[in-house]
Structures are given as C-alpha cells and as structure tokens.
Design a protein around this nucleic acid. Structure first.
Length: 314
DNA sequence: ATGTGCAAGTAAGTTACCTCA
DNA sequence: CTTGAGGTAACTTACTTGCAC
C-alpha cells in the first residue's frame, strides 16, 4: 500500500490515457472516470452562439462511482452526464422519430402563433395550458413587464414570445408538457444540449409547441443538468475531503511510529526512505516505499483549479 | 486595422403556477 | 379544504460573440 496522496497538479492528461484514478483500501473504493475532450468545456459548451460551428464536437462523459459507502446504489447511479455539441451536419439531422399525438395542426413556425398555440397539447391530460381572459396585470402575475421592447424583439425573432399575450391582456399560464413531449425533448437533449434555430423550429413543429417553449425547455434543462452536476461535484469533494482527513490521520500515526522507531532502533532508520513501504495487513512501515510515488487520488480536472486555489490560499 | 452598435445567443437568477402529500 | 414543499415553465438580466458599417 502506497501512502502518496496529492491534490494533483493538473499535469496529468486525461486525454492521453485512461482517465481513471483509483484509490482502494479496506474501507474505501473510490473511482473517478472523467473524459473531457475540451479542457474548458464547462464553459465552452454553454457559451457562445449555437450553430456557428466554432466547436465541432465536444463529448464529456462524466462518470463518478463512489463505493461502497455511497448513498447512491450502483443500480441507480448518479446520472452519467453525456452532453454533446454536435457538428453542424449532425445538428441539421432530423430526429428519427416524429412524435405528434396532437390532433391540431402544427403551427409552431407561424409568426404570430401566440393565440393559436394556446391549443398546445390538448392531447395531454396533464396540460393545464389555457389562456384566460380578463386577468389583470398584462404580463404574468404582476411581473414588471418593463422589457416590452425585448419581448417584442423576441417575439419577432421566433414568433413565439408573450408579447402577443401581453397585447391580448393574457396572463402567463403554465403549460405542463405531456409525457410524450418531455420524453421527446429529453431524447433530443441527449443528442445535443443546445439548439440551432432550425432544430428549434423542427422540434416545435413536431411537438406542436411554440419555438419559444422549446427554447425555454432547453435552457431550463441545461440549468438542471448543471445543478445536478454541481451536486455531484459537491458530494465528491465532501468524500474526497473525508478521504484526505483519514489519510492524514493515518500518516500522522505512521509518523509517530517512525519517530518512536527512530529513538528505539536508530540502525534500522538508517535505511534510505525509498526502501520503506507499508505492510498492507498491519499498515506498519517496511522496506520498499517509492519516494516518487505518483498521486493516488486526483480530482476531476474541472475541480483541480479550485483545489489549487484553495491550497494556495491556505 | 479599429471602434461601435446591433442582433442573437447563453447562463444565472427569479417568479409564478401546478401537483401532491 | 387548506397548506407548504418541490418541480418546472416562463421570465428578466447581464454578458458574450459575430457581423455590418
């Protein structure tokens, strides 16, 4: 058993070799797999304008296994996030299946579909979307509505926004997407977490939603993904901290033993440190410890900068 | 080549509605 | 029936980027 432990300096390229760091002991089995094709992907996926092809393809399967004490069973693992920004060609590809159980004709691409789209998802028993007249306040529920120009611009942009609602004095009403609509959007999100206008229109048409609804759904979906990832990161850091604390405790104990050994058996301690190692069964020092042992635990790349900053600060 | 204004896109944060225990 | 919590659709704001001038 090697005792080398480090936060990692980020020099390890996860791209070049198997991105797995593993720590094993009798009470710990922690495995982190990280595959990042673009190191600053965390930013690059969600920034910049979609559909410009600047980033042809970013794939980052993120897998985190925390065993055996993880509260999350392996049968129901934390979500394995696999987000892709597809190339332009892939983006333009039409979804294989068409899901449209709506008896009403799709009018999502129409310029001023606000009212007509109030029929959105009439097939859904879950849907509560209906435009109620006579609710005071114009734009939804006391909202300021101070951005009329922007909303108008948005409406003009994709022919979907609530300006027409406002003009009609219609309050924001919450649409509950049907299971079919949600499932289809989820499938689409798996293929690409951002949409170009063409895809947005196509999805809206297929699902009989307004393009703005599809856009909002993807925005919220990305936010949920990020939130979930943050929770995962937080949980991992927590366990990582516990591991470090435990290792620190063990090293302190070992140090005490070595000091005691030095005073009682000075000849034994004349051996070079590189020949010392630890017996895996009794966890006491023996010969063979590598002085240049590699770090056995490393953080995911996207956490390393934080850890280093923290390290530097302390 | 550089600066500026605009349009379009996104993330982050917030609000409001709906469902359910 | 009421209520509070949680989920989520819709919205606002701030920022970035690309393009035309």
């Amino acid at each position: 058993m090697e005792l080398a432990l480090s936060l990692g300096d980020g020099s390890t390229s996860f791209r070049d070799h198997a991105p797995v760091s593993k720590v094993s002991s009798k009470d710990l089995d922690l495995r982190v797999a990280l595959d990042i094709a673009d190191e600053d992907m965390g930013k690059s996926v969600f920034t910049g304008r979609a559909g410009e092809g600047a980033r042809s393809r970013v794939v980052f399967p993120f897998q985190l296994d925390l065993l055996p004490f993880s509260p999350v069973p392996r049968s129901n693992p934390l979500p394995q996030l696999r987000l892709q920004c597809l190339s332009e060609n892939q983006r333009s590809a039409e979804p294989a299946a068409i899901l449209d159980t709506n008896p009403f004709p799709a009018v999502a691409e129409e310029a001023d579909d606000g009212v007509s789209q109030s029929h959105s998802s009439p097939n859904s028993v879950m849907s509560s979307f209906h435009m109620e007249l006579g609710i005071s306040g114009g734009s939804g529920g006391g909202r300021s509505g101070g951005k009329r120009d922007l909303e108008a611009a948005d409406a003009e942009r994709d022919g979907s926004r609530g300006s027409d609602d406002d003009e009609n004095g219609l309050a924001r009403k919450k649409l509950r997407l049907s299971k079919e609509q949600s499932a289809f959007l989820e499938e689409s999100f798996k293929e690409h977490s951002t949409l170009n206008p063409k895809q947005k229109l196509a999805l809206a048409k297929q699902l009989n939603l307004r393009p703005r609804q599809v856009e909002v759904w993807f925005q919220n979906r990305r936010a949920r993904t990020k939130l979930k990832q943050t929770e995962i990161d937080c949980e991992y850091l927590k366990r990582y901290c516990e591991t470090l604390t435990e290792e620190n405790r063990r090293l302190q104990k070992e140090l005490q033993e070595l000091r005691a050994l030095k005073t009682s058996q000075p000849f034994y301690m004349q051996l070079p440190a590189t020949t010392l190692t630890m017996c895996p069964s009794c966890e006491r020092v023996a010969a063979g410890l590598a002085s240049n042992a590699k770090p056995r635990v490393s953080l995911p790349i996207h956490m390393q900068s934080q850890a280093q900053a923290h390290k530097a600060a302390s």
